[in-house]
Amino acid sequence: MNIQSIQNSVINQLKQLLESEIGDFFAGLDKPGEPASTQEKHQVLLSRIKSIFEDAEKNWFTLHLAWLMREEFNRSLMLQEMSVTSLKALMNFANSQSIASKEYAMNAFSIDDLISYNRLNLDFLNWNSLYTACLNEVNQRGEA
């Protein structure tokens, strides 16, 4: 399972939770003890939706952190198998991609660009992380 499929799964879960919360909210309308005014109903519904996103943010952070740790472990094992020449070539490529991602992200202008900026910023961090891992492996072998 890659990061894109995890993101799609999280988005689908959010959609299902939202649909369920909205359904539950409307099923409870006009029952005793439920909000009567439009403003109260609005506040209750917003509160339910806000709660979903707060929980999702907490869960997404934990999931993403676990994914990164697993990826980092797998990367470390892979890098240990590579020759120094291959490590240096990968390190140079990762560095060039890191620089290109950061430069492209710095030119975000619209909201669509801002979404791309966030993705590219993550892309930059991933390339930079790979560069650093290669550099550390080369340094550990004493062949910097």
Rank of each mutant, 00 (worst) to 15 (best):
R48W: 03
I49M: 08
L45T: 01
L87S: 02
R70S: 13
N59K: 14
T62N: 01
S86E: 10
F53Q: 02
E71H: 10
S47L: 09
E71R: 03
K58L: 01
D55Q: 14
H64I: 08
W67T: 15
K50E: 05
A56Y: 13
Q80K: 15
W60F: 12
E57C: 10
V84H: 06
F61T: 07
S83L: 06
N59G: 03
F61D: 02
L87T: 00
S76D: 05
W67H: 10
L45R: 00
L87I: 02
E71G: 06
T85M: 09
H64K: 05
D55C: 08
L63T: 15
R48N: 04
Q80D: 00
I49C: 09
S86R: 04
E71Y: 07
R75G: 02
N74S: 07
A56G: 01
L68T: 14
A56N: 06
L87M: 04
L77N: 12
L77M: 12
E57G: 13
M69K: 10
I52A: 06
L63S: 07
S76H: 15
S83Q: 03
R75M: 08
L79D: 02
R70L: 14
L68I: 11
F53E: 04
L77W: 13
S86I: 09
F61A: 06
S76A: 11
K58S: 01
L79K: 03
S76Y: 15
S86H: 10
S47K: 09
E54R: 05
N59L: 10
K58M: 00
L77I: 05
D55G: 09
I49E: 08
L46G: 05
S83D: 02
S47D: 12
W67K: 00
V84Q: 06
H64M: 05
E71A: 01
A56Q: 06
M69I: 07
W67P: 11
L65W: 11
E72C: 04
W60S: 03
F73N: 01
W60D: 02
S51I: 03
V84R: 11
W60M: 04
M82G: 07
S51R: 12
